[in-house]
């Protein structure tokens, strides 16, 4: 199983793997927002948590279709399905690889981009915490969407349409953590909710994703 994770990481970081594109997209998004709303701190500060989360969400979306599409094209998915590893574990591992190559860089980059958006200093810690807890769920739900659309020729747009509504609860609790943190409030409740959602997604969605993959393989 480690071999699968290692291979996916190697493929993502080698030439043509698209590693770092998500962070670059995230940067552009955060750089564009002030042009839209104006450079004043009073305009940027209240929307910074939301922009950072929505930006992370959209950046995550960019690379979702690669989770299974490439393996489907070259026949690896057929072979993985006949391997001794259960398909549920394959989907979970691929989501994990996606998180390490996309989600984790976003978590690291977000505090820097927070400065661009005048995010208050005391909220930075909560930004990292909320992204760290929330982004794994984004990758796993994305893997589910990718599993459903893997056989389709123009699945990319449909994938976004299917996955984004599933991101709503994560987005709500994620930004709530930062907002409460920035106001000096107690963000324990949204943290617990967000962690609960992520844990539930991790436990249950691999089964749905594996079921969808099996349908698409027949």
């Amino acid at each position: 199983m480690i071999a699968l994770l290692k291979r996916d990481l190697a493929l993502a970081t080698r030439a043509g793997g698209g590693f770092g594109l998500a962070v670059a997209f995230f940067l552009i998004l955060c750089a564009l927002v002030p042009f839209g709303v104006g450079p004043e701190t009073s305009a940027l500060r209240p929307i910074a948590p939301g922009i950072l989360w929505v930006g992370a969400l959209l950046s995550c979306l960019l690379s979702l279709d690669r989770i299974f599409a490439l393996d489907h094209e070259d026949g690896s998915l057929d072979l993985l399905a006949t391997a001794p590893i259960p398909l549920e574990a394959v989907t979970a591992l691929k989501a994990l690889a996606h998180w390490i190559t996309t989600g984790l860089p976003l978590v690291v980059a977000a505090p820097v981009f927070g400065i661009l958006l005048h995010l208050p200093g005391q909220a930075t810690g909560w930004l990292i915490v909320s992204l760290l807890i929330g982004t794994p769920a984004l990758s796993m739900l994305g893997a589910f969407g990718a599993a459903i659309t893997v056989g389709l020729r123009r699945g990319g747009l449909l994938l976004s349409l299917l996955v984004l509504p599933l991101y709503i609860p994560t987005l709500i609790f994620g930004t709530e953590i930062i907002r409460r943190g920035a106001e000096g409030g107690d963000p324990t409740t949204p943290i617990l909710f967000l962690a609960g959602i992520t844990a539930g997604v991790m436990a249950l969605v691999p089964f749905a994703a594996a079921a969808a993959l099996r349908v698409n393989l027949r």
Binding site: L166, V205, A208, A211, N216
Partner: peptide
Amino acid sequence: DLTGVLCLVG
């Protein structure tokens, strides 16, 4: 099958 699974998760 796929829409059924989507309906469940949805």
